[in-house]
Computed example of a mutant assay.
Amino acid sequence: PRDYHKQREIELVIKEMAENLAIRLRKGGKLASNLSLYAGAASTSEYSSVKVSRNIEATQNTKELQDLAISLFREKYQGGAIRQIGISGNQLSDSCVKQLSLFE
């Protein structure tokens, strides 16, 4: 564990974690309909932690999860060192189940 000071490094870690999330979702045969991101500020940082969650179209696609995680981070990040990073996929459903609309 260490403090990340450069936004580029923080985003690289976020991308790697989103990729791991996508791998776990595919392995479990699940789709995530919500993505949550937490970036905990270091004790030396004058800025607050980033906590954000967004409902998404159900997916397990690596690129989609990475892009969304980065956009969520950029939306809330104000600067400063980051010590902890967490990404979670929530509102899981089975990938073999497809929801149909009665009107289509």
Score class of each variant (00 low, 15 high):
residue 7 Q to T: 11
residue 20 N to K: 15
residue 96 C to R: 12
residue 91 Q to W: 10
residue 13 V to D: 09
residue 20 N to D: 15
residue 11 E to A: 14
residue 31 L to P: 00
residue 56 I to P: 04
residue 43 S to M: 07
residue 69 A to N: 00
residue 94 D to M: 10
residue 55 N to M: 03
residue 48 S to Y: 07
residue 83 R to I: 02
residue 100 L to Q: 09
residue 4 Y to M: 15
residue 36 S to G: 13
residue 53 S to D: 09
residue 1 P to H: 11
residue 96 C to Y: 13
residue 63 K to Y: 01
residue 50 V to D: 00
residue 78 Q to S: 09
residue 3 D to F: 07
residue 82 I to P: 04
residue 47 Y to G: 05
residue 65 L to R: 03
residue 20 N to T: 15
residue 65 L to Q: 10
residue 22 A to T: 08
residue 32 A to D: 14
residue 37 L to A: 00
residue 77 Y to W: 08
residue 97 V to H: 08
residue 100 L to R: 13
residue 66 Q to M: 09
residue 35 L to S: 04
residue 14 I to T: 03
residue 52 V to Q: 04
residue 14 I to Y: 02
residue 9 E to Y: 11
residue 89 G to T: 09
residue 93 S to I: 13
residue 10 I to D: 14
residue 8 R to G: 01
residue 99 Q to C: 07
residue 87 I to N: 01
residue 81 A to L: 02
residue 65 L to Y: 12
residue 85 I to Y: 08
residue 70 I to R: 02
residue 3 D to W: 06
residue 88 S to A: 15
residue 62 T to R: 07
residue 44 T to K: 08
residue 13 V to Q: 13
residue 13 V to E: 09
residue 73 F to Y: 12
residue 98 K to V: 06
residue 6 K to V: 15
residue 82 I to A: 02
residue 43 S to L: 09
residue 46 E to C: 00
residue 100 L to V: 07
residue 67 D to N: 08
residue 8 R to S: 07
residue 50 V to R: 03
residue 79 G to W: 01
residue 31 L to A: 06
residue 16 E to L: 14
residue 91 Q to C: 10
residue 84 Q to E: 03
